[in-house]
Amino acid sequence: MRRQKGPTSRPLTRLMIHATLALVSVLFLAPLVWMLATSMMPESQAASQSIRLLPDPPSAVFTHAKENYKSVWNDRTIRFPLYLRNTLIVAALGVAGMTLSSAVVAYGLSRVQWRGRGAVFFLVLATMMIPFPVLMVPLYLIFRELGWIGTLTPLWAPAWFGGAFNIFLLRQFFMTIPRELDEAARIDGCSHWTIFWRIILPLSKPALAVVALFHFIYVWNDFVGPLIYLTDQDQYTLALGLQLYQSQAGNTPWNLLMAASALMVSPLVLLFVLTQRTFVRGVSTEGLK
């Protein structure tokens, strides 16, 4: 009898699958390894024809690494520490707002019985299709009217009104929480707010974590928003700072560019390692229809 292991279990097939997946893994990780390797080399060796992962002599790797990362961190014009702080401020305010408001709206779309619910939910789904460029120019003008151009506000304030995808995600999750729980609470005279705050939210921690995580990554990633709304270089976020670092008259050597990129990538990889389960769960829900 064949074991219930999965669609395939012949040894040769398994070996080939392993070989393929191992090769694919190497290919997928190579760019990041190369980024790290370049970031720990002197410029003259980064720009050379040979393939090497460690500088020559290899023992100098720490000296070069320290030097490169220090010069990125301490650059006088492109001020990464400052951009990191700006990014974290936007992320903190944005994540708090996004998680809370999306949950509120998702509650309204899953737990409150009203007639407009279906229509609103449809609208939520529909807005997910709108390409950002359509909003780009008028949003700039609206933020200009609000006096937000040149401040960090446009980057986090909209998050306080919820995000379509996150509302969708949380609504799907709330639907899986048994109705009996809040009906019992209703009979005890609890208001919607109490039910939301005391019952639904505590039970939805995994889903809320996904929303928070995704929004954090979104903020970390966002390039177009800062590009359009920020004018003062001291308010730049990391994504914009990195681009600036590359573009300013094309004056940046490869090793430093890679060090700067590594600085931007590493927190996310660390976060992933610490929350792989939440991540995978969150991404998998994206595939729900």
Binding site: L29, L32, W34, W220, L242, Q246, V265, L268, L271
Partner: peptide, 21 residues
């Protein structure tokens, strides 16, 4: 994880890395 990690790389950083690659 190996296949997923690159999706975490912010687009800007990913552009830099490939620019170099």
């Amino acid at each position: 994880a190996a296949v997923f990690i690159p999706t975490l790389v912010p687009l800007i950083a990913s552009a830099m890395v490939w620019f170099w690659l």
